[in-house]
Design a protein around this nucleic acid. Sequence first.
DNA 1: GTAAACCGGCGTCAGGTGGG
DNA 2: CCCACCTGACGCCGGTTTAC
Length: 122
Amino acid sequence: MKGPFLLEELAVNMAVTGDETETGPAGTGGCSGYQPHKLPSSSLAQGGAMANIQRSQHLGEDASKRKELRLMKNREAARQCRRKKKEYVKCLENRVAVLENQNRTLIEELKALKDIYQHKVD
DNA sequence: GTAAACCGGCGTCAGGTGGG
DNA sequence: CCCACCTGACGCCGGTTTAC
């Protein structure tokens, strides 16, 4: 399929380690507690190499969590979208059925009226 | 019985859109 | 702007139908 997306780039940019693991399809879900945007500014404003590594790992984790969350939401949105579309199609089909019935009865009615008129003329 | 065609559903990506 | 959400398009998969 197509290449990665925004958040991964973001992750790569943010995480010095670039340790982004691509989770397979049908990701496991779970992971609740959504934080819309803005990474939490790390508690460690300055530190040694170890602190930096920990920090980037943390950021990487955060990015992948966000990605997972985004996928989860999109998965759900797609399901809902399909449900909605199906309902819409069903509704249209019902409408077609109703209109066809109406059309039939109108045709019948017209035929009957024509008959009456014909008898009057004769 | 089985290969091929068809179908319906799913997850993901990409692009559009509206709201803050 | 940026973000979240919606939806079309794509590819994959498992189940069902059809032709042999």
